[in-house]
Write a protein that binds this DNA or RNA. Structure first.
Length: 280
DNA sequence: CGGGCGGCCTGGAGGC
DNA sequence: TGCCTCCAGGCCGCCC
């Protein structure tokens, strides 16, 4: 479900309410997530600690604690975080709860259980397994046209799949890959190595712009994204192609197309995003 | 060895 | 009402 803008929206919301709070208790009802929840590790590093900062790396939410350990949360496809009073009735899939001193708690709810809750010992974050093969942050100065062009050298895979590869650049999921390519006027099927210098420039700019706009809109709510206060995002009102198959392009009124690439839906405008003379 | 694909899960939508 | 199929915002390991 959540891509970078949604995770960033949650991070900002939690930052306002969690800094300085002490995690008094962790309640676990289900340990079978993407990887089994390590209860003893969580208790060892997290219980009794004050929240020092909320950070984000790729789609991972990081809660830095006063002892310099980190609580790591990934929302997978269907994960949600809700900050609420601890008396509020539980949802069926509220798997992990972090109870604070102020009568509130943070609930990790994840019906499909593709998400992750983990603790990382002080100073160990840079060695964390899941961070080892991640590319740069898309909103950092590292994401340049030159960087993308260099990484794409010799790669025949479609640009859409290249963009969604976290080893190339993190945070760009299925929605924002399609949206960024539309903004750049590039066909999702175009072989990565065949993009021109000017296209790389447009694409780097389009990725940054699309993500930044979505963050300012509070993310995209298609069915079930809500921020930590339970409010929806509004970027779905600005989607140009995602989930719009058969509808008219907002720029040229051509019918938006849906294709499947690497098992995922891609959406594009056949007129605004021409392939040129490359076949299939 | 790049990269496509299936699998991990539940639930909602739509067809019959 | 039910049962079936398909689909879903992520990620990883298996294979060709």
């Amino acid at each position: 479900m959540p891509e970078l803008p949604e995770v960033e929206t949650i991070r900002r919301g939690l930052e306002r309410v969690l800094i300085g709070q002490t995690i008094r208790q962790i309640k676990i009802r289900e340990t079978r997530l993407r990887q089994p929840v390590k209860i003893s590790k969580l208790k060892k590093w997290v219980i009794g600690q004050q929240v020092a900062a909320l950070q984000r790396r790729a789609k991972y939410l990081l809660c830095e604690l006063q002892n310099r350990a980190h609580l790591v949360i990934h929302l997978g496809m269907s994960g949600r975080l809700l900050y609420c009073e601890k008396t509020r009735p539980l949802h069926k899939h509220d798997h992990v709860r972090f109870v604070f001193n102020n009568g509130h708690e943070l609930r990790f709810c994840d019906p499909r259980r593709f998400g992750l809750v983990d603790a990382v010992a002080p100073g160990e974050l840079q060695h964390y397994t899941h961070f080892q093969n991640l590319g740069p942050e898309p909103l950092s100065p590292e994401l340049t046209a030159a960087y993308l062009e260099r990484r794409a050298q010799g790669l025949l895979r479609p640009i859409k799949n290249f963009l969604m590869d976290a080893a190339v650049v993190v945070g760009v999921g299925n929605i924002y890959a399609s949206e960024s390519l539309f903004r750049a006027g590039i066909n999702p099927r175009k072989p990565s190595a065949l993009l021109r210098r000017q296209e790389w420039k447009k694409l780097a700019q389009a990725v940054r712009k699309t993500l930044a706009l979505s963050i300012s809109a509070g993310g995209t709510t298609l069915n079930d994204f809500y921020n930590s206060d339970g409010e929806m995002g509004y970027f779905q009102q600005h989607l140009m192609v995602y989930d719009r198959a058969g509808e008219p392009c907002h720029k040229c009124a051509s019918k938006i197309k849906r294709i499947v690439q690497a098992g995922r839906s891609s959406f594009y405008c056949p007129r605004c995003q021409k392939l040129g003379n490359i076949k299939r």
